[in-house]
Design a protein around this nucleic acid. Structure first.
Lengths: 134, 134
DNA sequence: CTAACATCTTGCGTTTTGCAAGTCGATTCT
DNA sequence: AGAATCGACTTGCAAAACGCAAGATGTTAG
């Protein structure tokens, strides 16, 4: 499928993480499901970042085989599938929050989204607990 | 140079972070300088993960223009250059530590490096302060 | 049963990556 | 001083990944 198959096998935990979710798109998908409540293929397709459909399905399958997402039928719309974070996926929350915090410090662009950053800054513990409790 | 030039411009802080350091190699270089004390081109070339020389120089230049690394002459060996983390680069420490922590939880491979993970787990605050104080 | 919907697949041109070899300036050796 | 070495890049080319557009498959509503 793609590069994560040939894991670097260096034993380094940083490399392990990057092999699992460290590509151009995976963390954006995880962000969408973690922070924006997105659940379906078509919701992911509508992201501002415009992922290609073949790349999206590739990443969804990859994240599923890595045990970060799990796929099930949508009981309310039986032609949709729902992708949800597993425990392993929810454990990525601190990484996402740290990336957001870092960007809050260093993104100087005028259109940078500061809202989310400030919301996390106010009460990081509470914010994280909220996300994890779903 | 490469994809980070065309930033996604979505304003999302996660996307901003990924555009800056979220590729297959950048965080491994940052890990090497942050955790392993590597400083020069040839030290980075000797990483277990075997980066290609053209990719390495590309990423070093990119991280330099992003203000994460700064390059200077080595006063002790004038045919070497030294790459060091800026404040912006040192601020990535929590992200690296969270990745390591996550891998510590979820890397089941027999040769996973648990040493570093445990060291961080013992006293995360102290470990982070140590790295930041350089 | 047909139309619309949602998820995926395929083909193909472009971009990025990986590998091997070579260049170039600074230092050391003789 | 001239040759060899070292460290930091550069270049050329093949392989892989990506991005786009179009199409195929399965599901449900009318």
């Amino acid at each position: 499928m793609r590069h994560e198959n040939k894991k670097r096998q260096s034993g380094c935990p940083v490399a392990f993480g990057l092999d699992t979710f460290g590509d151009r798109w995976s963390l954006l998908i995880i962000r969408d499901v973690m922070l924006k409540g997105k659940k379906t293929y078509s919701e992911f397709m509508n992201a501002k970042e415009a992922i290609a459909s073949n790349i999206l399905i590739d990443r969804l399958k990859h994240l599923e085989t890595e045990g970060i997402l799990e796929k099930s039928r949508d009981p309310e719309n039986r032609r949709s599938f729902i992708y949800a974070l597993t425990k392993k996926g929810r454990d990525l929350t601190p990484i996402i929050l740290e990336i957001i915090t870092w960007s809050g410090l260093h993104d100087q662009r005028p259109f940078a989204m500061r809202g989310l950053v400030e919301e996390i800054g106010k009460d990081r513990e509470e914010f994280e607990a909220l996300l994890r409790s779903e």
